[in-house]
Design a protein around this nucleic acid. Structure first.
Length: 226
DNA sequence: GACCAGGCACATC
DNA sequence: GATGTGCATGGT
């Protein structure tokens, strides 16, 4: 499959015209964004909001407070976000990392070299490429495009890149074709999530999607040129 | 009741 | 390297 710079920009323009700026990530601080990035793994965002609001109500949304808190207690607070035992361990691993390496400060974390910081995050148990890149882009304002299930679904359905392509292949395409445009990376991924939630469902191909184009027809699970 | 949601680690072949 | 499985809540 051929990746195409113009198509990638066209998709962005259509989504931006349809939805407008998204002002992501929803969160009051870089630390909250990082916590949200872990909690939202394979989970609906509305469930994550409940968990984060529990943490806020308990006034423990800081690295030190969460680190001090017994795991069972933390698990109870983040319960609405699902996989709460797994995510408790992942949060604890991230807290240990940020406290030992950056004194619990997201600001200090953001001062390091992006590539090596990404590798440090990937070395934390429970932080994979999407979570690491979400933290880099949305909490630390680094030029890292975030690839998620929606990104792959929308892109593959429009014949841009095969669904089976790897995370790195997808990311490389965005980086090569869009340049290091932090602002655009931020909006583009948010817009892909929006169109994924609203129209680009796993099963049906919706003709009322803002990306629908009359010169395309429904092929086997994807849109193809007439 | 089935399906879906802003992944990741681990086991097995 | 590819494929399969467990983890869990809440909305539609």
């Amino acid at each position: 499959m051929k990746s195409n710079k113009r198509t990638l920009h066209e998709i962005y323009d259509k989504l931006y015209a349809f939805y407008g700026p998204q002002h992501w990530w929803p969160g009051d601080s870089p630390f909250e964004v990082a916590v949200g990035a872990i909690l939202t793994q394979n989970t609906n965002w509305s469930n994550v909001e409940k968990a984060i609001s529990n943490l806020k109500a308990a006034r423990v949304l800081t690295a030190r407070a969460l680190h001090r808190m017994p795991a069972a207690e933390l698990a109870l607070l983040i319960r609405p976000s699902g996989y709460f035992n797994i995510k408790t361990g992942r949060l604890k691993a991230f807290l240990a990392f940020i406290l030992t390496v950056y004194s619990g400060s997201m600001k200090r974390m953001g001062k390091g070299d992006t590539a090596s910081l990404r590798q440090e995050l990937l070395n934390v148990r429970g932080i994979g490429p999407e979570t690491a890149d979400s933290i880099l882009l949305y909490a630390l304002d680094k030029p890292m495009f975030v690839i998620d299930a929606y990104t792959k679904r929308v892109m593959s359905r429009h014949g841009i890149l095969d669904h089976g392509a790897s995370y790195d292949e997808y990311q490389q395409m965005f980086h090569e074709l869009l340049g290091n445009n932090i602002r655009m990376f931020n909006e583009y991924h948010a817009l892909l999530v929006m169109v994924g939630k609203d129209y680009c469902k796993p099963k049906p191909l919706c003709e009322d999607c803002p990306l629908y184009d009359r010169s395309w027809v429904i092929g086997h699970g994807s849109w193809v040129r007439k």
